[in-house]
Computed example of a mutant assay.
Amino acid sequence: MSFVLRSLAVSDPGLVRPNNEDVAFAGSRLVAVADGMGGAPAGEVASEIVISGLAPVERSAETDPLAALVTAITTANARIRAVTDEDQATEGMGTTVTAMLLTGRRLGVAHVGDSRGYLFRAGRFTQLTRDDTFVQALVDQGGLTSEEARRHPQRSLVTRAVQGGPVEPATVALIVEAGDRLLVCSDGLSDVVNDDAIAGVLAGYPDRAECAQQLVKLAHQAGAPDNVTLVVADVVPAAGPELPTPAG
């Protein structure tokens, strides 16, 4: 059986930032979030370059979702390098990216930075990506707990980004099931809303629009110091070919 995504994206500036450097894509095969960095307008430029580079993958004939994602991100990374070479004012700009591509039953996930990808399946909530951050490295070494990392003053210090230099996206592959719910989000959500609360919303709001708005609401209730961008996507069986109507 083949599957498609029913997806919806929401991007909110939050309550503190004067501009929004996040960009999202919500398609029937591809979902992605890029969180720009480097200050306005450079961060916005970098995130737009990456999402624009990923968008054609939605209709790609490539059967390997991971290969398609990595190629698109690598190409966008080179484009960012070209832009910064042409305009010194954009030097240092970059972006995170987390993208998921569905091909048949195969879901590929490609990731750089601290935007996150999650899977909610049969009541179980799983983080599919690992943050490329200073505090995550401390957690991995046993120096911080996950909850301490959430409150750490350097929690947003990213150790890898798509900014024109050498970068290899981390990848994950899995087989989807009907009823799976996927979430891709910027750290404007995951830094201020804990996993239990996110999982509760994914479980409690079947309607994607209501689900997305509730997640943004929780981020606002927590102060929303950063842009909040997310894509909620449900895995559903692909519609079969339309059968001809019998004559007579």
Score class of each variant (00 low, 15 high):
V4T: 15
L5M: 15
A9P: 09
D12N: 09
G14A: 12
L15K: 13
R17Y: 13
P18F: 02
N19A: 14
N20Q: 15
E21T: 12
D22V: 01
R29G: 06
E44I: 05
V45D: 06
A46P: 06
S47W: 08
I49V: 15
P56L: 09
S60E: 09
T63G: 13
D64H: 13
P65L: 10
L66H: 13
V70R: 13
I73R: 05
T74N: 05
T75N: 14
T75F: 12
A78Y: 07
R79P: 05
I80R: 11
R81T: 03
R81C: 03
V97W: 00
A99C: 08
M100H: 05
M100G: 06
L101C: 10
G104N: 12
V109S: 06
R116W: 04
Y118L: 00
L119E: 01
R121K: 15
G123W: 00
F125H: 04
L128D: 14
L128Q: 14
D131W: 11
F134P: 04
F134R: 07
Q136W: 04
D140E: 15
A149H: 01
H152V: 09
R155C: 02
V158W: 01
R160K: 12
G165C: 05
P169W: 11
T171F: 00
V172G: 07
L183C: 03
L183A: 03
C185T: 07
S186N: 00
L189G: 02
L189H: 04
S190R: 02
A197L: 06
A199S: 13
L202R: 00
P206C: 08
D207G: 10
D207T: 11
L215P: 00
K217C: 04
A222N: 05
P225Y: 08
P225W: 04
D226E: 09
D226T: 02
V228W: 01
D234C: 14
V235F: 02
V236Q: 08
G240C: 00
L243T: 02
P246Q: 09
G248N: 08
